[in-house]
Design a protein around this nucleic acid. Structure first.
Lengths: 209, 209
DNA sequence: CCTACCGATCGGTAGG
DNA sequence: CCTACCGATCGGTAGG
């Protein structure tokens, strides 16, 4: 589990450090596929469109990937595996639940803010399609870890009970906000963390003002 | 503008009051199309699947709708036109911005909680595709109205400035939460309203505890 | 609302 | 990585 996450993290960190012009064809395919999936949905994006943007002929895609679905599967692992690993670490650490939650949220939003791929819709596809088992398992682990931290916060009286149901979906929304807001900065991330904490915390626990 | 909204509202209110068994074929088509669009995306859902669920042959769909896109277009208007109308009314009313915002949010979440159609993905399709001009216009009106109320709240010192950017997307998320959470109750709506207000309000203005 | 059917486009293969 | 191409499936039409 951890190895998979670290492998994916290593790869994506390498991608981030590499200027886009020098990306290999395989990674260019993933980038353009993610953008077209985000714009037109998985079925709406065609392999011919992907190939055109990469600058190769459509059948050449299948020298790099066995199928269109396998592109989605690889993107889905990128999307969910590393966050799941971080969330599990935050859930397993000792200390204040709210501090660990705030720390995770800050990492998560920064992760999406600097993500090279546009993975909107990939998450949705993961939830829908019964295939993509690896990515679906990562989503489960992520939800379990976030749920655990939040319930720890409820137990210690810091997190409001009714907020637990809304926080995961809202966190996901804020993550995508960081992706598609072009001028999102580290300040934007800070604001979003405070926004989510204000919603999740019991009012009397919010001593920031 | 108002006539369109009221027409759509009338129609959808009629649908709500009618037991599902008695729905006419045309409305059954819209219902099943919305569910399949939500599950497989617009392109992923096929007209043959829709027809099968309705219990008719695929070509018969086109006796009720000129095209598959026209089903999406009609659903998109249902999705956005009525909320846009309500948001504009809330924005144009006098009184406390926060009270009007809270009132709108409560109405919005209850609207989605009791919605007969599953319109997830329809909103996304509206944002993507350059057609669906009517629905796109409604989205614009909705965003403008919500933005106006929020800026009024910022001006009166009630709403936190950094929250303005996040509230529309988060409200949308909470709306969908009401759709796909099967056991969402009026209590769930109340909790979500409080959750969103806690995030959006300047801390000192939250006098609820 | 049905049967019969069509042109277009899809993901993917063969062979080099 | 290219050209040539294929079977399957798509949205939609014709005619009754």
């Amino acid at each position: 589990m951890s190895d998979v996450a670290e492998g994916a993290e290593q790869h994506i960190l390498t991608l981030r450090a590499t200027p886009r012009r020098r990306w290999a064809t395989r990674d260019k395919i993933l980038l353009e596929a993610s953008r077209l999936f985000a714009t037109h949905g998985f079925r709406g994006a065609t392999t011919r469109q992907i190939a055109e943007r990469v600058g190769i002929q459509q059948p050449s895609l299948f020298k790099h990937f066995p199928s269109k679905s396998s592109m989605l599967a690889e993107l889905a692992v990128y999307d969910m595996d590393v966050p799941a690993h971080h969330a599990e670490t935050a859930a397993a650490t000792s200390g204040s639940a709210v501090d660990r939650f705030a720390g995770y949220v800050a990492w998560d939003l920064e992760w999406y803010r600097t993500m090279p791929f546009d993975l909107r819709c990939v998450t949705e596809q993961v939830v829908r399609s019964e295939r993509l088992v690896e990515a679906r398992a990562a989503v489960k682990r992520w939800n379990a870890a976030i749920g655990l931290i939040l319930r720890q916060g409820v137990a210690s009286g810091e997190v409001s009970e009714s907020a637990v149901a809304f926080v995961p979906a809202v966190l996901e929304t804020l993550s995508w906000h960081m992706v598609y807001t072009k001028d999102a900065s580290e300040q934007t991330v800070d604001d979003a963390v405070r926004f989510l904490l204000a919603a999740a915390l019991e009012p009397r626990q919010d001593l920031r003002h």
